[in-house]
Amino acid sequence: MKKRAFLLAVAATASVLVGVSGSAQAAPTGCSATAVGYGSGAYCSGGTGEFRAKTRCDKPWAPDYDRYGAWMGVGTWSSFAKCDNGHVAFNATWQTR
């Protein structure tokens, strides 16, 4: 009986470990972002998954705010996050999933 309980414990541990290692995902790589006037663009050239541009926008005499571009596939097109008219983009970066 002890041998059977031991084997069940080993099997359960192995299935948990396989589940953890199987859930790892490759992320986009080779990413860059640039703020250009009223927005920022981001591009990722490798890996898998999706990315989008993120930027902070400076609204004169008011709190700054974040804007996000569309989610894009790796190596396809650039994602662009646009600030409202008259506001300036800064802190250009990207997000991945």
Rank of each mutant, 00 (worst) to 15 (best):
A70H: 04
N85D: 14
T55S: 08
P28A: 12
W94R: 01
H87C: 04
R4Y: 15
A42G: 04
R4Q: 13
Y65L: 12
S21R: 14
G41Y: 08
C83R: 06
L7Q: 02
Q25T: 15
E50K: 12
D64M: 04
C31L: 05
W94P: 00
M1E: 15
S45K: 09
G46T: 04
A35Q: 00
G22L: 09
D84W: 10
A27L: 13
P60M: 06
A5N: 15
P63Q: 06
D66Y: 14
T93M: 00
W77V: 06
V10K: 03
P28S: 07
K3Q: 11
T34G: 11
T96D: 00
S15P: 06
Y38G: 15
F6C: 10
R4H: 08
R97I: 08
E50T: 14
C44D: 00
C83P: 14
V74K: 02
V88E: 12
F6D: 02
C44M: 00
S32M: 07
T55G: 07
H87R: 12
G37K: 04
G37D: 12
L7G: 04
E50D: 12
K59Q: 12
R56L: 10
M72G: 00
K54I: 00
A92S: 13
R52G: 01
A62M: 08
Y65S: 03
D64L: 00
A9G: 15
T93G: 07
G49R: 01
P28H: 01
